[in-house]
Amino acid sequence: MASLNIEHLKYKYPGTDRLALNDISLSIETGEFIGIIGRNESGKSSLCQAIAGLIPNFYKGAYGGKVLIDDIEVKKVPVDELCETVGTVFQNPFNQVTGAKATVYEEIAFGLENMGVPKEEMIRRIDRAMELLDISKYRDRYPFDLSGGQMQRMAIAGVIAMHPQVIILDEPTSQLDPQGREEVFQAVQKLCGQGITIILVEHNMEKIAQYSNRVALLDAGTLIDFDTPQKIFSRVDLEQYGVEAPVYTQIGKRLNLTIEDTGCYPVTLEEAKTVLLRKGGNDPVWL
């Protein structure tokens, strides 16, 4: 059963005359890991904000269509109640620190306190969230003293402690170093394994290919395609939408190597290795 349905979603920011989201429809199953890709200003962030209900309840503007999570129409629920259904993680870990709490532990409690969760339940949820994000060891640290990757995982912990069914992450790793980025991706994958639906915007196509079940390709506010990463990255017109396929796919395209059963080009390191080994791509003769 599809848990997240978007039906003919249209949206225009106030004071602009271009549709930021132009008639988008798609269904996402519970527990899927969805990647959203497209060039800058293609509507990725707007789509995220619409799923989180920030459009049209925080950003006003012209709005049409529906976003449904199970039976809840997000537009009709105030943002502060919707956060127990959809969680949002933003790009800059720094600006997600509330600035009102002295420790990581208290910081994660922020949302739960606002929602009026009883203390014992709160403690249980914080402990679980810290464990899932592997930040229990920073429990008593001052939030602003964490590294970028740790801070971002703390932000995610604060969001998942509220037990949302869907988590939206808008370029959560773009400001992190490779280690911090990997930490965040692994944590997010673990959450996905717990049955939480993940919606992630990311410019690093190798990561999108590695982690997503399906990928939504946007351009100029329109949904161009919504399919498996293999299908999406195998499209011949990809560059037209300002997206570069993962290097593994590009190599596959150049050498015309496809995966046997799907006819698609490889998208991950593993897949590229498989097709190349089949082709006999072992050590080429060097000079």
């Binding site: 490779p178 390191l269 072992n282």
Partner: peptide, 17 residues
Amino acid sequence: YLEQPDVMKLCTELGWR
């Protein structure tokens, strides 16, 4: 705590000399 660039990872995986 760094990674190889993606193309190089593939060379490594394939065991190229």
